[in-house]
Amino acid sequence: MMKVAVYPGSFDPITYGHLDIIQRGSKVFDKIIVAILVNSSKKPLFTVEERIRLIEEATVHMPYIEVESFDGLLVDYLRKKNPHAILRGLRAISDFEYELQVASINRKLNEKVETFFLMTSNEYSFISSSMVKEVVRYGANVKDLVPEHVELALRKKFNLECPAD
């Protein structure tokens, strides 16, 4: 039987930290569904369709990845997909308290839901999508934080030229 995990998030945009969790999660799970949360209260930089394309391009070499979007509660989405676990990345201790609360409420709403936490590799532990957007907005080079096509998409959104290497 195939072991499936759902990796939920906004992925606005996908970073090397996200990709690290996906690649390492693939050692435990046969298939990972990257599930983009459509949150009407947030104002993402990229549309859902753009985020799907950016993730698909970043994971094109990973045949075990599926990319989808969902709105509403994660536990409702999980009932449709019936995965073995939710995959979540932890960058630092500060992430743990929030993620524990989310995992606990998900478990309360659906006792079949298990959350699998992976610590992000040290080299990516400081990366967040919001941090990447902030530094790109000021023209910084983020080639070590996101794949090249994501950096180009970010620069296009902010109407910036690509930096010289």
Rank of each mutant, 00 (worst) to 15 (best):
S94D: 07
V146E: 06
K108M: 07
L19V: 09
N39F: 05
N39Q: 07
G17L: 06
I36A: 05
V6A: 03
E151K: 07
E49S: 13
E123N: 11
K81D: 10
V146C: 09
I55D: 06
S121W: 03
K156I: 12
L74C: 08
V102K: 00
D30F: 11
I22A: 11
I93E: 10
K3N: 12
D76T: 11
P163S: 12
S125N: 10
I55R: 08
A153Y: 01
T59I: 12
P13W: 13
K156T: 15
M2N: 12
A153E: 02
R155D: 10
A85Y: 03
D95L: 03
T120F: 05
I33V: 14
T120Y: 06
K143T: 15
I32K: 10
F11G: 03
Q101G: 13
K108V: 06
K143H: 14
A103S: 13
D12K: 00
R53A: 14
V60C: 03
K31C: 04
G17Y: 03
P13H: 10
F70V: 07
Y124M: 00
Y98E: 04
S94K: 11
P163Q: 09
R79G: 04
R51K: 14
L87M: 05
K42V: 06
Y7C: 04
C162A: 15
N106L: 08
P63D: 11
G25C: 09
E151P: 12
E66M: 11
K108H: 13
P63G: 07
V60Y: 10
K42T: 01
S125F: 01
V136H: 11
G89L: 00
L90C: 00
S104D: 04
F117M: 11
A5H: 04
C162L: 15
E97V: 09
G25D: 02
V60R: 14
F96L: 10
G25Y: 08
L37T: 05
A164M: 14
R51G: 09
S121E: 10
T115G: 09
K42E: 03
V75K: 07
D71K: 15
C162E: 14
L19W: 10
E151T: 08
V75I: 14
E123H: 07
R88W: 02
L100E: 06
E68C: 15
V113C: 01
M131Q: 09
M62A: 08
H149V: 05
S40T: 03
E56V: 03
I55V: 15
M131S: 11
L118V: 00
L160P: 09
E134M: 05
F70P: 08
D30R: 10
V48G: 10
A35T: 08
F158V: 12
I93L: 13
E49W: 11
E68D: 15
F11C: 09
K81V: 14
I33G: 06
S69F: 08
L54Y: 03
L54H: 05
Y16Q: 01
E50H: 07
E111G: 13
P83K: 03
F11E: 11
A85S: 12
P8K: 08
T47F: 00
G25L: 11
Y7S: 03
F70G: 05
T15D: 08
K143W: 13
F46P: 01
L118C: 03
V38L: 02
V67Q: 01
E49R: 09
V135K: 02
A58C: 04
K27Y: 13
E57I: 13
L74T: 05
N141P: 04
